[in-house]
């Protein structure tokens, strides 16, 4: 190679390297210093989680760095991330707004056992026997009814009302049972009734033409606007409409029979996380009774797992009958329910 050619080649490589490396170096230099911190992945809405993290930060001096999930990913985004990061975990704690994905994370070997001393007064059904996760607070599956369109004496009282011809099928709705808490509710019904009856129930819902809507929040909004007479949703979504002063009422289904599904939050320690001790401290803070009560007061929880828990302002939730089915059994039914419901609702 001649001298000139070599010089041109060197120049070219240098320019290309500068073009690519300078932005990368600039970005790497943006890395923050490692301090006394804890990293949490949470599917809980920022509006509710952030004040709790700020308070923890003030009390302990430990900086909380959070990654939030979004409704659009139906709470699977962070679970996907935690599974992919299993060999080099970046998070210390996972705070989920339900329990099924947390149990799946345990099965995937992402979690490590930790029984918080502050969870002593939480009843046994809300804790993993091996200490991998702890449930607290939560919400319930309910009917939201438009009070301008439906008289009180006509309110629904069971999820079987979704099949009752007195309700026009195109004026009632529920979220897609393949996702979110409606999916968990479906898996619970599979566990409670058996696969055949549950499959027939959802098949009949589809056959009737009940409106399947993209998410519980939209069910709430369609009922509040009067496009639907009633719909199946969660208490936290319904509370938004109640607080807004929309013409809606909340009905807990199946209180005379098998009860409604209570969906508590769950929290777990990540195996091999970068700050395990701070992670334990954060879990201690999250599961303590005061935090649970604060989240009820903020309107995020509508129920507590403790006997002494306070009630929410928006919906009276005293003496609500929940379904009597272990959470692990609900999770076992997720996959068979998904196969059936995919056949029914995705066609």
């Amino acid at each position: 190679m001649s001298f000139n050619m070599a010089m041109h080649t060197r120049k070219t490589i240098s320019c290309a390297a500068i073009l690519i490396m300078v932005p990368l170096l600039l970005l790497v230099s943006c890395t923050t210093d490692k301090k006394d911190e804890v990293i949490i992945y949470t599917a809980v809405d920022r509006e509710y989680a952030e004040p709790i993290f700020n308070e923890f930060q003030e009390n302990t001096g430990i900086i909380v760095k959070a990654v939030y999930d979004v409704e659009a990913s139906k709470t699977t985004g962070l679970v996907m991330r935690l599974v992919a990061e299993k060999d080099r975990p970046r998070a210390d704690v996972f705070w989920n707004n339900e329990f099924s994905q947390t149990i799946l994370l345990k099965e995937n070997g992402v979690l490590t056992p930790y029984s918080s001393p502050n969870s002593g007064d939480i009843p046994a059904p809300f804790k993993d026997p091996e200490g991998y996760w702890t449930c607290f607070g939560g919400r319930a599956r309910i009917f939201i009814v438009n009070t301008d369109l439906v008289k009180k004496e006509d309110f629904p009282h069971s999820i079987y009302d979704l099949l009752d011809p007195k309700w026009p099928a195109d004026r009632i709705g529920m979220a897609n049972p393949l996702f979110g808490t409606t999916k968990t509710h479906a898996a619970a019904l599979y566990g409670l009734w058996g696969a055949d009856e549950a499959k027939k129930f959802f098949g009949d819902i589809r056959e009737r033409g009940v409106r399947i809507i993209d998410g519980n929040a939209l069910v709430r909004d369609l009922v509040a606007r009067g496009e639907l007479m009633m719909g199946l949703t969660d208490t936290d979504d319904a509370c938004v409409a109640v607080d807004r002063g929309d013409p809606v009422a909340v009905v807990f289904p199946d209180q005379e029979t098998f009860g409604t599904l209570i969906v508590p939050n769950s929290v777990a320690l990540i195996r091999g996380g970068p700050n395990p001790q701070n992670g334990e401290k954060l879990i201690d803070y999250l599961v303590m009774a005061e935090t649970e009560d604060a989240l009820v007061g903020a309107g995020f929880f509508q129920t507590t797992v403790r006997e002494s828990g306070v009630g929410p302002d928006c919906i009276p939730m005293t003496d609500i009958k929940g379904m009597d089915i272990p959470y692990a059994e609900i999770v076992e039914n997720l996959s068979p329910a998904k196969d059936d419901l995919g056949e029914i609702f995705l066609q």
């Binding site: 139906k74 699977t76 679970v79 996907m80 599974v83 992919a84 994905q101 799946l104 995937n108 393949l178 996702f179 999916k183 997720l334 996959s335 998904k338 995919g342 995705l346």
Partner: peptide
């Protein structure tokens, strides 16, 4: 997406 939501398998 529904398959991923239930199976968590990339």
């Amino acid at each position: 997406f529904s398959d991923f939501s239930a199976e968590n398998s990339p």
